[in-house]
Design a protein around this nucleic acid. Sequence first.
DNA 1: GATTTTCTTTAGCGAGGGTAATGACGTAGT
DNA 2: ACTACGTCATTACCCTCGCTAAAGAAAATC
Lengths: 141, 141
Amino acid sequence: MSEQDLAAISQLRSSTMRLSRRLKHQRVEESLSPTEMGVLGTLARCGKATPGELARKEHVQPPSMTRIVAMLEEKGLVRREPHPEDRRQVVVSSTEQAETILAESRRRRNVWLAELAQGLDEEEWAVLREAAPVLYKLAHL
Amino acid sequence: MSEQDLAAISQLRSSTMRLSRRLKHQRVEESLSPTEMGVLGTLARCGKATPGELARKEHVQPPSMTRIVAMLEEKGLVRREPHPEDRRQVVVSSTEQAETILAESRRRRNVWLAELAQGLDEEEWAVLREAAPVLYKLAHL
DNA sequence: GATTTTCTTTAGCGAGGGTAATGACGTAGT
DNA sequence: ACTACGTCATTACCCTCGCTAAAGAAAATC
């Protein structure tokens, strides 16, 4: 790995950390923690999941996920149904209301990020626009 | 703003959030919270700062910073000296030990990220390498 | 010189996540 | 078939971390 590559890696790392910290402050639903938003996000992607699966995906311990799901259910953002085959398990799915909140949250962060990107000149933005799909792939490897 | 731009913004946002969440798990010093690491980072960059300045930079309230600095001092990662002109203030600076931890932490996250980047092909990595400085600029706007 | 402002610190509180233990249910072994 | 073990969700309890409010010391202002 070349010197240039290492420099790029380092810049990528620090930029990612810093940008995410600033994005985190752009919350639409103040009453929802980042992890709770994360749960809604994965539910939106996967459709439904058990608490155990959610805990693993969000890097949280099962008891914590139990509490998170309970709170989300109380707010009407999530449904809990018994698992069809395994009566130990529970199936969690998100509601319409959750989708709305999620969409609004994304929209707001996009607006904030777009405004920030105004500070780049045309050429820089072209570079970033090309890199976006690659970054997306990297994040999901 | 074009349709393409919006798509790029959205990808940038979600990739950033996801990558940072995964990077956060690559901690070298388990006993130090992200904010505490952030303080060490800004001290490394700025040399020295008062608790008030640190609080502003880390988006934390002054009382929280007081406790963070106290804990860091207890661990020998930070020094507190009286301010030369203003006896209300305190000047905080980082120690050698902090630099070591910081460097190790960066190194470890770089390694992790570099390994992840192995999953990209040559062309994709070239795009990202070019985008890294731009992303860095964006994060610091 | 008195008052106001600024900086740090102390005290107390609440959110959010973790571990240990429990209970209900499936699964394997004999 | 029945016992022992593993797994999933949950409950109970603790601990970390950040916040607000208030206090104390020092500077700035009038």
